[in-house]
C-alpha cells in the first residue's frame, strides 16, 4: 500500500499522517506529480483559506493533476471543498469534481462550527461499520450544499453535505484523523477501498 498525502502547504497534515501511522500505514507527504500518480491511495488535505490554497495548487500544477487521478482520493475539510465547483470563500473556483457549491454559514449560528456533530443518511462503503448519527469532529465556516453526490449529511442551522463521492473521489468535511475510533474506522475503510 503506497499512500500519499498531497503536501501543497495548506495546513496541518501531521495529524493525518499520525492517524494513518496508528493504523500501521506510513503515508508519504509529497507534491511530486510522479509520486502522487504512482500512489495506490491519495489524501487531499487542507486547512486554511480557499483562494490561497487554490493558488498554491495552481502554482504547482496540481490543479490539473488532481482531477485526472484514477485511484481513490479522499479530500478532507478544505480539500473536500476545493473538489467542489466553487466556494464563496475568496470567490474561488474549485476543481469541479463534486457538482455542488460551498457557502458560508449565516450568522444565526456561531461561526466557525467547532466541535462534534453527527453524520447521517450514510450512503457509501466509506462508512462500512459506522452507525447512523455517529459523532465526528468538525471545524469549518463554509459548507457544501446537498447534491446527488452527497453521501452524508449534518445539521448546523441548516442541513448540509458532510461527505461526497463521485467515482474514485471521496470528500469529507469532518476530520476523521481527529474523530476518535469512529474516525479511524473511516480512514481504515478508505484504505480498504
Amino acid at each position: 500500500m503506497k499512500l500519499v498525502i498531497i503536501n501543497y502547504g495548506a495546513g496541518n497534515i501531521k495529524s493525518i499522517q499520525f492517524a494513518f501511522k496508528r493504523l500501521g500505514v506510513d503515508a508519504v507527504l509529497s507534491n511530486n506529480p510522479e509520486e502522487i500518480i504512482a500512489a495506490d491511495k491519495i489524501i487531499f488535505p487542507g486547512v486554511g483559506e480557499a483562494s490561497s490554497a487554490m493558488a498554491m495548487l495552481k502554482s504547482s500544477g496540481l490543479d490539473t493533476l488532481i482531477p485526472n487521478l484514477k485511484q481513490p482520493v479522499l479530500g478532507i475539510c478544505l480539500g473536500m471543498q476545493l473538489l467542489c465547483e466553487s466556494t464563496e470563500e475568496g470567490n474561488t473556483i474549485g476543481l469541479g469534481i463534486f457538482k455542488t457549491h460551498v457557502k458560508r454559514f449565516d450568522n444565526t449560528v456561531k461561526v466557525p462550527q467547532m466541535g462534534w456533530n453527527v453524520i447521517s443518511n450514510l450512503k457509501s462503503n466509506l462508512f462500512n461499520g459506522i452507525k447512523e448519527n455517529e459523532y465526528m469532529y468538525l471545524v469549518h465556516s463554509y459548507y457544501a450544499e446537498h447534491c446527488s453526490q452527497t453521501i452524508a449529511s449534518t445539521n448546523y442551522g441548516i442541513n448540509y453535505t458532510s461527505a461526497l463521492q463521485h467515482n474514485n473521489f471521496y470528500g469529507v468535511q469532518f476530520h476523521p484523523e481527529k474523530s476518535s475510533t469512529a474516525g479511524a474506522k473511516i480512514l481504515e475503510n478508505f484504505l480498504n477501498l
Binding site: 495529524s15 499520525f18 501511522k21 469532529y137 471545524v139 476530520h175 481527529k178 474523530s179 476518535s180 474516525g183
Partner: peptide, 11 residues
C-alpha cells in the same frame, strides 16, 4: 506536542 499528536485521536 508531537508525541501527543502521534498518539491521541481527539483535537
Amino acid at each position: 506536542v508531537m508525541r501527543v499528536a502521534e498518539q491521541v485521536n481527539i483535537p
